[in-house]
Design a protein around this nucleic acid. Structure first.
Length: 288
DNA sequence: ATGACTGGATAGTCCAGA
């Protein structure tokens, strides 16, 4: 069984990338984030294309922002939009959906960004993660959290830790919130399989960041031990970030138990330590 | 070339993204 997660940065302009990618990689379960569509619009836009490919799907959407979905051809049961005790900002946002797919409780997650450390939105992010942890701890033993966690687990998951000082995604409280899932038995599957590789899943659209491979690994698949034990491959599909009109995030893919029937792609990332930045330190692109 | 922001809502720019 192949499970994938992809922050598509809006479904509508991404259709010319998403549908060919489904046909190429042939995932059994796909978790999508940043739909930027209502459920109704999602169903109308892409429903027939998914049905034609043998997928069931469930979305939790809203107009303009957020939105998550699960697409599955190995069953889609007990769908839950949001989760028990999920905080809002202040109203609930469409950032979490879960379902039973192929015997695993699968969560598609779009964790709040946090915006600025110590802001209201940052506290919302931490509260949201703490509430999610409680739900997962009380839930089924075969569970997988897939999505845009908006946290780089360690300094090895950003191109240059110095560039992120004072920013969200790398602060100790955020990393502690993420480590909370480790404390209830979940593992970072891709990092476990590539302990020293330079791997990113997000690159800013601006300033040629992708072309210089200056990114962050913030899209994660966290799996409980029974699921982790089944993993045969785990990788970031960097090819999907290339070319015309890409998302700014790449998909993350894991294979359980057996070889997939889809194109496996360039699974092996370069087994290198983080590259030293040549010349002047690279600054993050700044908003105007 | 992997190639130098994008998307949504809106009606001129502004917010959000990370």
């Amino acid at each position: 069984m192949r499970i994938a997660t992809w922050n598509v940065n809006s479904v509508k302009p991404r259709l010319p990338r998403l549908l060919p990618w489904l046909d190429q990689r042939r995932p059994d379960v796909v978790c999508l984030q940043e739909l930027k569509l209502t459920e109704f619009a999602f169903d109308n836009l892409i429903g027939p294309d998914l049905t034609e490919r043998g997928y069931e799907f469930a979305a939790y959407g809203q107009s303009q922002w957020n939105g998550v979905a699960i697409v599955s051809r190995v069953g889609l049961d007990n769908v839950e939009r949001g989760f028990s005790g999920m905080p809002g900002f202040p109203e609930p946002e469409a950032r979490a959906i879960s379902a039973d797919c192929g015997g695993i409780r699968i969560h598609s997650l779009y964790v709040p960004n946090g915006r600025e450390p110590d802001s209201d939105h940052y506290r919302y992010k931490l509260d949201w993660l703490a509430a999610l942890r409680d739900v997962v701890a009380a839930g089924p033993s075969d569970v997988t959290l897939c999505g845009d966690m908006n946290i780089a687990p360690t300094d090895a998951d950003v191109f240059d830790p110095a560039a992120y000082v004072g920013h969200t995604h790398v602060t100790e409280p955020e990393r502690a919130a993420l480590a909370g899932f480790g404390q209830i038995g979940l593992r970072d599957v891709v990092r476990d399989h590539w302990p020293t590789a330079r791997m990113f899943s997000y690159w800013d659209y601006r300033a040629g960041m992708f072309h210089q491979d200056l990114g962050m690994r913030i899209d994660l698949i966290l799996a409980s031990q029974p699921v982790e034990a089944r993993v045969r491959a785990a990788w970031i599909d960097r090819e999907a970030r290339k070319g015309k009109a890409p998302s700014d995030h790449a998909p993350v893919i894991i294979d359980l138990d057996s070889a997939p029937d889809g194109d496996i792609g360039p699974v092996v990332p370069p087994p290198s330590a983080p590259r030293p930045t040549r010349g002047r330190p690279v600054r993050l692109p700044q908003a105007k």
